[in-house]
């Protein structure tokens, strides 16, 4: 008698897989990767590959040592690595990404049980860890966009090889990031266009708003991320820029620099949307994203760090379980459990 496969219903499934989702995110980050190479040369690509490689390596090693099932095939380590790389300045020495990736994977993700179980976004926590440990390397020399014509493609390689003094040189030619001058006000249209396309200082992935938008819209269209998160996050930041601007006599002048500058778009599209560290209901997501936007604005305008996106997301990650508790989804036909109480 024939024997057939027996399993529980449903017997069909859609095509989406975990690795498929992660690959979509990698694809969505491709424009930002290309932009980073265009603006910072091949050292950017080197850093990105290094981050991805060490993230995957750290996860593989952890699984091996702990005798867990190998999980690197789900591509989530690659996403973490790449996101961390895009959060680094073009001037960091090569050991920084290795340490950062390993920290993010082992201490933020794997120790909590691996994919889906971490409470904070590994890439962001990795960045914050590096900020605290190597603050100087992580913020001071942002690195300015290179010129491809006179051997600029390898400019940062040369700087690194020449040692620290060269990095100082870079710092010398680099003006502050757009954001550090945000509180000082004053942006010309030309600067804004630069910020949009990417020819400004900043971390590898932050400079080109256009590249991030392309990737972000792709993720929304492919239904990998919920549009509510980036829209609310960015919208909240814009709103506070309007209020702050209004208070400083230039209501509209702050909006575009706030939205286009710094890590906002990278954070809003790619990091605040992380599944395990954001709420599970649509209302919860909006509250979460609003919190991200609020904290980002507060840090930017009143804090001592010029950039607040990472801290904002991290803080909201920690609040996520409470948001989930407060904004529970009620089942279809939910009846309030009260004696005699009726809900229509």
């Amino acid at each position: 008698m024939n024997k057939f496969v027996v399993s529980s219903s449903p017997h069909i499934a859609n095509r989406r897989t975990v690795s498929g989702i992660m690959q979509e995110v990698l694809i969505a980050l491709l424009p930002a990767v290309i932009a980073s190479v265009y603006f910072f040369g091949f050292y950017a690509l080197f850093l990105e590959l290094l981050c991805v490689g060490s993230a995957i390596g750290a996860e593989a090693l952890y699984n091996k040592v702990m005798k867990r099932e190998q999980t690197i095939k789900d591509c989530s380590a690659a996403v973490t690595g790449l996101l961390l790389a895009l959060n680094l300045p073009a001037t960091v020495p090569f050991y920084v990404p290795i340490i950062g990736s390993a920290f993010a994977i082992v201490f933020v993700k794997m120790l909590f049980g691996g994919i889906g179980k971490n409470f904070a976004n590994p890439a962001i926590t990795g960045r914050v860890f590096l900020l605290l440990a190597w603050g100087a390397l992580m913020t001071k020399p942002w690195g300015s966009p290179i010129h491809w014509s006179d051997g600029g493609a390898f400019y940062y390689f040369r700087c690194i090889l020449k040692g620290n003094s060269a990095i100082q040189d870079v710092a010398a030619v680099t003006t502050a990031t757009p954001l550090s001058s945000l509180t000082q006000g004053g942006y010309a249209g030309k600067d804004l266009l630069k910020m949009f396309l990417g020819a400004t200082g900043g971390s590898l992935g932050e400079t080109s708003a256009l590249a991030l938008l392309i990737g972000g819209v792709y993720l929304i269209v492919r239904r990998i991320i919920d549009w509510r998160v980036p829209v609310t996050f960015v919208g909240t930041v814009a709103l506070f820029a309007l209020i702050y601007g209004g208070a400083n006599g230039d209501a509209l002048g702050y909006i575009l620099p706030s939205v286009l500058g710094g890590g906002l778009l990278l954070g809003a599209f790619f990091m605040a949307t992380d599944y395990s560290t954001s709420p599970n209901t649509k209302t919860g997501l909006v509250v979460f994203a609003f919190g991200c936007g609020l904290i980002t604005s507060l840090i930017r305008f009143y804090g001592s760090y010029p950039e607040g996106v990472s801290f904002a997301i991290l803080l909201m990650n920690i609040l996520t379980p409470y948001i989930d508790k407060a904004f529970k989804m009620h089942p279809f036909g939910y009846v309030k459990q009260k004696a005699g109480g009726q809900k229509k």
Partner: peptide, 19 residues
């Protein structure tokens, strides 16, 4: 036609798609 085989089972990634 059936889903088995080509879709690996892994840990829940908390994507809330089911919900």
């Amino acid at each position: 036609e059936v889903a088995e085989g080509d879709k690996p089972i892994s840990a829940c990634i908390n994507c809330a798609s089911c919900a």
